[in-house]
Design a protein around this nucleic acid. Structure first.
Lengths: 118, 118
DNA sequence: CGGCATCCAATAAGATACTG
DNA sequence: CAGTATCTTATTGGATGCCG
C-alpha cells in the first residue's frame, strides 16, 4: 500500500513533478517577491480560478516548496510564502523570467502589468 | 482573423507557453546532448506515446526552438535538434536538471537510467 | 521508420452555489 | 476572506490500424 519508489530517466522529470503544473512556476515566481494572500494571487492571475489556485497551492505545499500561514482572525487571513526549500528554485524561476522577457521582445508581445518587486 | 497580441502579467508566462508542455523540458534537455531520432526519443521516454511525442515536437518546432531534419531515404530518417534559439534555453534546462538531482536525493527516489552525454 | 486518423477513456478546468 | 462541493464541459491522452 505504500508508495512505490519512483524512478526517472532524467533528473528534469523530478523537477517537473514539483513545478510542472500549468501555473506553478508563475505562482512561485510571484512568491519570490514576498508573501502573498489568496486574494492577491487571484488578482495577479486573472486567468486562474479559485479552485485551480487552491489545488496548485496545496500541491506546492505538499511538495514542501511553499508554506501556508493561516491567521486565526475574522475575517480569515491566509498567506503563502516560499519555504526555505522553495527558495532553492529561485535560479530556475529567474532564468525563466529572463528568457520570457527576451521571448516577448522577439515575438512582439506585451507584458500587461509587469510584476516586479514592490 | 489574425491572432490578437497576447499579453502576460509575468514574463514567466511567456516562457511557459513555449516549454510548458508536460514533456517539453525533458525533450529539450535530451536534445542538449545532440540530435535525436524519433525512435530514440521514444525509447528514452517510455511513458510517452508516439502521438504525444509528435505533438510536442511539432509545437516546439513551431515555436522555433527545435529543428526537424528529414532525410529523404528509405526507410525514412528524421532527426530533431535544438535550434540556435533553442540553445538559449540551456540555462533553464540545466538548472532544472541540477535541482532535480538534489530533489531526488532529498526524496530518496531514483534515476533509472540517468541520461548523460554520450 | 515516422507519422497520421479515428475512436474512446481519463483528466483537467469552468460555473455555480454554499460555508466557517 | 478563503475556501469546499457538485456538476458539466473541454482538453489531453491511450489504443489501434493504416500509409508513404
Amino acid at each position: 500500500m505504500s508508495e512505490p519508489v519512483k524512478t526517472y530517466n532524467t533528473a528534469v522529470e523530478a523537477t517537473l513533478e514539483v513545478i510542472g503544473g500549468k501555473w506553478k512556476p508563475v505562482i512561485l515566481f510571484l512568491l519570490t517577491f514576498g508573501k502573498k494572500r489568496n486574494g492577491e494571487l487571484l488578482r495577479l492571475l486573472p486567468a486562474v480560478t479559485q479552485k485551480v489556485l487552491t489545488q496548485q497551492l496545496k500541491e506546492l505545499e505538499k511538495d514542501g516548496v511553499i508554506v501556508r500561514i493561516s491567521h486565526n482572525t475574522v475575517p480569515p487571513k491566509v498567506e503563502y510564502e516560499l519555504s526555505e526549500y522553495g527558495w532553492s528554485l529561485k535560479d530556475i524561476l529567474h532564468a525563466m523570467c529572463r528568457w520570457g522577457d527576451a521571448h516577448i521582445e522577439r515575438t512582439c508581445r506585451k507584458l500587461a502589468n509587469p510584476i516586479r518587486p514592490e
